[in-house]
Design a binder for these strands. Structure first.
Length: 479
DNA sequence: CGTCAACTCCCTAAGGAGTTGACGGTGCGTTAGT
């Protein structure tokens, strides 16, 4: 199929007159029967790639997705477009619903599920009965980011693929270094000769980069100064749930900004409500941990501030990439402190099993569930599955530790460089050419660009807060 | 890493000095049944 024919199919199925940048080539590749890995910035219509390809191929499209909320969003979107042959197979289904779905898979065109679900033998047996058009791995960087120490089922996607007869495969992600792409291809057991890779742009020209170095105790003050100048909405990222809560509380007390904290300790209901309010512009900013963001498609986010740096530049780029999807000028600020870096280095040490733990796990052929963090246990289970010797296991752990430390060092390098930060990111992702926008970064000696929008800070709702009775009583008795 | 809260000790008791320990984040599916 050529480009002109594809365009008319696009018109027919979706009513769009033209493809967005980066969509066409992966679709042509898939339709030519090639396994395909494509990196495209979020918000540029990644899902259309498997949707249109799926329509033009016979059989069911299976989409592996990391989050229940993403599956539900995608199903809702397809149903909204009139595609009823869509379902999500996950733990939210009642047994009867699940049974009904699994016994009528031949009625389904797009099936969403988690990597964990593909470990279920009954599910796999049902899937094997159905001809597959395409096996899609959405947010494929999760394989590399989570597979070894967090959600090990990501490592078994390759085995699941093979059990399903090596179906045509499409892996999609926003950004990936060559190392991450290597992890993805390797874990999926894809034959490199039958693979096409398409890399989209990494740079986001409308985001201005800035790093402000300061000791931790000055961050609150500095953050308030920024919020005084920046129009809503925005995101502030933290690497601790407690600090996200504390700073959200502080902002609520000192400004009239509408703010909520978002992290894994919030209830599901709260998380859904907060996300919804944010999307509806009913919140000005969210104080979040890394739990917030995947699948968030909000166009008008004006700033992303990092109260703490993340563990890698990949994560940083993903998180700041949520700003300025509408193309308007936006700003990314990192509040950098070497204390934070040292703390993360220390934490990284505790993330890995000691030699003693490795040896006893291998000796007992089992992981002691009472000892070590969940991530350590996941790593040990991997060691046992791979049947590594003690020496191999120690080398594996040492290499893993070094890799994580290097990721962190490159993040630190970004914060501390005196050269162009945009160029640093570009080089990190292996891009050779870079066109610098007029508002590049603080190191390019360029003033921070003005942002368009309404500044709320302290003047929108001048309310004198009435303290809760418990607070009055507590103050009275100096509790 | 370096800070800070909680604890112990002193012993007349109170509160000050010294010591110790804590200190990060991401989510599936799970339960019986096909």
């Amino acid at each position: 199929m050529d480009e002109a024919q594809l365009k008319s199919e696009l018109q027919k199925y979706f009513g769009y007159p033209a493809f967005k940048e980066g969509q066409l080539d992966p679709i042509l590749s898939v339709l030519a029967g090639k396994h395909t890995l494509a990196t495209l910035p979020t918000g540029t219509g990644k899902s259309l790639i498997y949707q249109l390809s799926g329509y033009l191929l016979d059989g069911m499209v299976v989409i592996v997705s990391p989050l229940l909320s993403l599956m539900e969003d995608q199903v809702a979107q397809l149903k909204f477009m009139g595609e009823k042959r869509t379902a999500s197979l996950n733990s939210m289904l009642q047994f009867e619903e699940r049974q009904k779905l699994l016994s009528s898979l031949d009625q389904i065109k797009f099936l969403f599920l988690s990597p964990e679900m593909l470990q279920n033998q009954f599910v796999m047996n049902q899937l094997k009965q159905i001809p597959l058009a395409l096996f899609v791995v959405d947010e494929a960087h999760c394989i590399s980011q989570w597979g070894l120490d967090f959600r090990s089922d990501y490592l078994f996607l390759g085995a699941a693929r093979q059990a399903l007869g090596n179906p045509l495969t499409l892996a999609l992600t926003a950004t990936a270094t060559s190392a991450v792409m290597g992890d993805i291809i390797g874990s999926l057991h894809i034959d490199g000769n039958a693979l096409n890779v398409f890399e989209g742009p990494v740079d986001r020209a409308n985001i201005y980069y800035k790093v402000a170095a300061m000791p931790p105790e000055e961050k609150n003050e500095h953050l308030l100064e920024l919020l005084k100048r920046y129009p809503s909405p925005g995101i502030v990222y933290f690497s601790s749930k407690a600090q996200a809560d504390a700073v959200a509380f502080m902002i609520r007390k000192k400004t009239s900004l509408r703010v909520e904290a978002y992290h894994a300790d919030r209830t599901n209901e709260d998380r859904i409500t907060i996300q919804h309010q944010f999307l509806q512009d009913e919140l000005d900013l969210i104080c979040a941990t890394s739990a917030f963001g995947m699948g968030i498609n909000k166009a008008n986010i004006r700033y992303v501030i990092h109260y703490h740096m993340p563990n890698s530049l990949e994560e940083y780029v993903q998180e700041i990439g949520r700003a300025g999807r509408d193309g308007q000028q936006s700003t990314a600020v990192l509040l950098y402190s070497e204390t934070d870096y040292n703390f993360k280095v220390k934490m990284l040490q505790g993330d890995f099993p000691s030699d003693f733990t490795i040896e006893s796990a291998i000796k007992n052929k089992a992981v002691n569930p009472d000892y070590g963090s969940p991530t350590e246990q996941t790593l040990l289970q991997h060691i046992l599955r791979q049947q590594l010797t003690k020496e191999e296991a120690k080398q594996f752990i040492a290499a893993r530790r070094e890799l994580k430390q290097n990721l962190l060092k490159r993040m630190k390098g970004f914060a501390e460089t005196d050269n162009c930060r945009r160029a640093y990111i570009s080089a990190y992702f292996g891009k050779s050419s870079l066109v610098k926008p007029s508002h590049c970064c603080d190191n390019c000696g360029i003033e921070e660009p003005p942002l368009v929008g309404t500044i709320i800070f302290g003047n929108a709702f001048p309310t004198k807060a009435v303290p809760h009775w418990e607070k009055i009583v507590s103050d009275l008795f100096l509790l």
